[in-house]
């Protein structure tokens, strides 16, 4: 196939996906809009206050949160990128032979070093 044909083939395969995204978004928005017009509205100060088991809400809820969450998010970003590198390798594994196997073993060994380091540093402890 020539370049243009490849591009057309590519576009025609992704076209239904694009249509699906549009339809799903429309479904969400339209349902909310219709529901907005058919529902009763009786706003009251008590009803609109944040739920805190019946007592008066105190202070703003958007407070600083434990740094634990942040560390796990960082670990996730690093490890997930490494996982994404494994995907193309896994797909062409049958074609790249021994070199491909050894190279990825080295890559996974590096992954393991980072993992063991994080573990020993206590980054994986929650408490």
């Amino acid at each position: 196939m020539t370049g243009t044909e490849l591009l057309l083939d590519y576009l025609s395969r992704y076209f239904p996906v694009f249509v699906f995204v549009v339809i799903a978004l429309l479904f969400g928005v339209v349902t909310l809009v219709i529901s907005h017009f058919v529902q009763p509205k009786y706003p009251e100060a008590e009803k609109l206050s944040a739920y805190e088991c019946g007592s008066e809400p105190f202070s703003d809820a958007r407070m600083p949160f434990p740094v634990r969450y942040y560390i796990f998010a960082m670990l996730f970003v690093i490890f997930d990128i490494e996982v994404i590198f494994l995907y193309p390798w896994a797909v062409v594994f049958g074609k790249i032979g021994f070199i491909g196997l050894v190279e990825m073993l080295v890559f996974i060994a590096l992954f393991l070093v980072a993992y063991v380091y994080a573990w020993r540093k206590g980054a994986l402890e929650w408490d």
Binding site: A50, Y51, E52, P57, A61, M63, F65, A73, F76
Partner: peptide
């Protein structure tokens, strides 16, 4: 967005759990 303490805690927990 809810600006409620329960919602914020639930959202944070969920994010950490889903990414792990």
């Amino acid at each position: 967005a809810s600006n409620s303490k329960y919602s914020l805690l639930g959202g944070l927990r969920s994010a950490a759990q889903v990414i792990s």
